[in-house]
Amino acid sequence: MRAFLLAPALLIVAACTQASAQSDQPIAAPDAQGPVATASVDAATCKAAGGFLDRRGRMQSEICVHPYADAGKACRDSQECDGKCVTGASPEPGEAADGQLVGQCQADDALFGCYAEVVDGKRVRAICVD
């Protein structure tokens, strides 16, 4: 059973090692809409694509960030947003448990920190991204 669990971990490590060996290649977030970090981000290319350079995350990597037009709009589901409908990772005191949670559309495609996605008025998939 341990070999069964170890095999996927080894594949991930191998893929990361191979990707880091090719440092001139862009490293994209798992989400196709996410930001792209490269060893040397081209400011002109980023700006031409409607983005701006910013340093984000624990590593403060310079990435090209693309803002969303509906940033900060109240939402009850990610289908109402260009990105995700998000709220804090932990429930607030007095938060409605009846499925009427209102979140906000994320500001841009470089979402870092702790948050939960709002789907159908409910907090789901809480995560911390550094």
Rank of each mutant, 00 (worst) to 15 (best):
Q22N: 15
P26I: 09
I27E: 11
A14S: 15
I12F: 15
R76T: 09
C46Q: 02
S20I: 13
C85H: 02
G50H: 02
Q79L: 12
C75I: 05
P91N: 06
A14N: 14
C64D: 00
Y68R: 04
I12D: 14
D42T: 06
G72V: 01
G50M: 03
T38N: 13
A69R: 02
C85L: 03
K47I: 11
D24T: 15
D70G: 00
D77G: 06
A21P: 02
Q18C: 08
R55S: 08
C16T: 10
A48F: 09
K73L: 03
G88R: 05
Q33L: 12
G50P: 05
K73A: 01
I27N: 11
V36I: 13
D70Y: 00
R55K: 10
R76E: 06
S78Y: 03
Q22E: 15
G51W: 01
I12W: 15
E92T: 11
D31Y: 10
A48H: 08
K84G: 04
L11W: 15
A19H: 10
Q18V: 10
V36R: 05
P67C: 05
A43Q: 09
A71F: 03
A69K: 05
V86E: 04
Q25V: 14
Q25M: 15
D24N: 15
G34C: 09
P30K: 14
G88L: 05
A44K: 11
Q18L: 13
I12E: 13
K84L: 12
A43K: 09
T17M: 15
Q79N: 13
L11E: 12
P91L: 07
K47R: 14
Q22R: 15
P93N: 03
Q22W: 14
D77R: 02
I27R: 12
S78C: 06
L53H: 01
S61P: 02
D77I: 04
A19L: 13
